[in-house]
Design a protein around this nucleic acid. Structure first.
Lengths: 362, 362
DNA sequence: CTGTTAGCGCTTTCAT
DNA sequence: ATGAAAGCGCTAACAG
């Protein structure tokens, strides 16, 4: 029952620990017979190398961390993150490395980060400058930022502003007067100056409203958690106050889907009574009924790109890059007016890659 | 840039490495002034303890592994797993431990398992006797089996057979003659004797068919991947062959949702032309339109229970348990006939807990 | 209260 | 082709 160590195997096989190590890692340098004898005893004794000891020495664990700004349980409730993790998983699977999800949770994020046995981090939704990121830098653990600002670290973002702008402009162009906006729930401190993704999407909406000369009243922007229930309850509350918006912009598809459930429950038909445009284009957007119009962003691709960037940095200490992926308005049934054919409209630009030379980070 | 170690801090602070260690882990045993001096130098130098060294000594990393039988990218494509991970995450967050997902992937599962820096494993969809589980036992890493058979390890399952039976019986009771079954895609070897969840759900369906004296033809059971597209393509193919089933039983909600998409595309109305019952009761089942009738299983609860069981085993070396959670047929709109009120039917039983005494397991 | 000593389990020179 | 010895970074005993 007590864990069997390399020493135990060595003793039983009448060789040195070094020989056992070699038998596992570089069999060529041992004679065939010793190797097989060692392997046999190892098997018989049920020996498995201790990953921690190995990692301590090799400075490699074969694990990539993914850092979320929210509790793990909330993260998995949002298909956006699932899709993102699919992308990450494609690469980690291919490279046979594990995937460690870390989140703020009960204890402090800082502690969790500091203690995480990983070779590198993909950080989602946090700016490089964020306090939580400091311990990583301290530990000298390489990281890539996703959906957040960065100057020196590599990062992957999408053109949120342009996508949001397209969505709002389309709705306004249809003549909708009362548009309800479902935004990200956020700490009060950030409310008047939302940063990152939340800020960019809202800014896109606002630009369209401004251009169309339609005022966007403060009570038309409802902050709500990124979940089915979040969207559902947000619309429910608005409807219960007697307001009847004719269109809805949601910063996330899952919110939009939740809102549609509330709409249906309240006897509103989509899109006739309520036009809806989401954001993300999660796989379910095409499986809902009616199918969801939304701002497409390449979610899986985002995960793949970020992971490759990180892995490359780990392997080659390659250069840092800031990447911005395009967004695109996809019109489906929740905005269809009569029998008009569905349209696709090119959204954000692919700004190309700015490659930075290695900076004095970390 | 070179990582700073405890020794560096000790030297600069003019104390011993042990003092530095104490300053971090048990400040009480040091004088206040020394502690703050040490902490200050640590901060200045950018010191962070090395998790591997720490784990090597303490035999604790603060990470729980979750082992899936499929590639990570497939796993995250199935909301069932997301919901399960939500449950797991609730507990790991609470206890401030990380969550490492490991999957077969490119490299061998065995290697991945052996090398994973975790304190314990939640194993999903693999029997205790499975070959892949051996290395764990060898390493002496505690684990809990979910959705799989086990004799000595703790396990969490639901009453698949009973749930499936209820679903099939209901459909058959409605007089459906041509029922299509969407089953789990599986390796050819297992086809004629499916094990575990796949076997139990199919067995439940079969029992209902047998009782109703309706033959279940082999070509009425279509094996398909557990995903939106899997279900979509499966039904598409059947329809394209000219067959028009009046009802569909899917072993997974996500398949059912995919099939509904295919049905809609082919002009079939649900439930009028095609009644549908899924399995799992993922959150989306209530957000789809029409809402999905399904066999409810407490997915998040399953994740929570399994994780608590594992944690308890790690902490107390507590006793092993085999737990079976109940299932329940939930009738929603995809089986509604006319205006009949929705029904709930109690399904599987909560068999209670068999508590095993500690067995001689690795 | 603080410092010294001795490993945790493994790999890696460097001899043999 | 094989073994001995040193040490990765940290902490747990013990002494001082």
């Amino acid at each position: 029952m007590g864990r069997v160590t390399i020493g135990d195997v060595a003793r039983r096989a009448r060789v040195s620990p070094a020989a056992v190590s070699a038998a596992f890692n570089d069999p060529a340098q041992l004679s065939k017979t010793t190797v097989s004898r060692i392997l046999a005893t190892a098997l018989r004794l049920g020996y498995a190398p201790n990953p921690h000891a190995r990692a301590l020495l090799s400075r490699r664990v074969g694990v990539l961390g993914v850092l979320f700004p929210q509790a793990v349980s909330t993260v998995f409730a949002n298909p956006f993150f699932s899709a993102f993790l699919e992308g990450v998983g494609e690469i980690t699977d291919e490279r046979a490395v594990g995937l460690l999800t870390v989140s703020p949770a009960h204890g402090s994020l800082a502690r969790a980060i500091a203690a995480a046995p990983v070779d590198g981090f993909v950080i989602v939704g946090l700016d490089e400058a964020h306090d939580e990121v400091a311990p990583l830098r301290r530990r000298g653990v390489p990281f890539v930022i996703v959906d957040g600002d960065s100057e020196v670290a590599s990062s992957v973002n999408v053109d949120d502003e342009a996508g949001a702008y397209q969505a709002a402009r389309f709705l306004l162009g249809q003549g909708h007067g009362d548009v309800l906006v479902l935004g990200f729930h956020m700490p009060p401190a950030d409310l008047h100056q939302p940063r990152g993704v939340a800020g960019r999407r809202l800014a896109g909406y606002r630009r369209a409203f401004a251009e169309a000369n339609v005022p966007l009243a403060e009570d038309s922007v409802v902050r709500t958690p990124v979940s089915l229930n979040g969207g559902d309850e947000a619309l429910e509350k608005v409807l219960s106050r007697g307001r009847r918006p004719s269109a809805l912009l949601a910063v996330s598809d899952i919110m939009a889907l939740g809102a549609m459930r509330a709409a249906r429950r309240n006897g509103l038909r989509v899109p006739e009574d309520l036009a809806v445009i989401g954001f993300d284009d999660i796989p379910l957007a095409t499986a809902s009924h009616p199918t969801l119009s939304t701002v497409h962003q390449p979610i899986r691709e985002k995960g793949r790109v970020a992971t490759r960037l990180l892995l490359r940095e780990l392997d080659d200490s390659g250069p840092r890059e800031q990447i911005v992926l395009p967004t695109e308005l996809v019109l489906r049934e929740t905005t269809s007016t009569g029998k008009a054919p569905l349209r696709r409209e090119k959204g954000g630009s692919y700004r190309g890659r700015r490659t930075l030379t290695r900076a004095a980070a970390g």
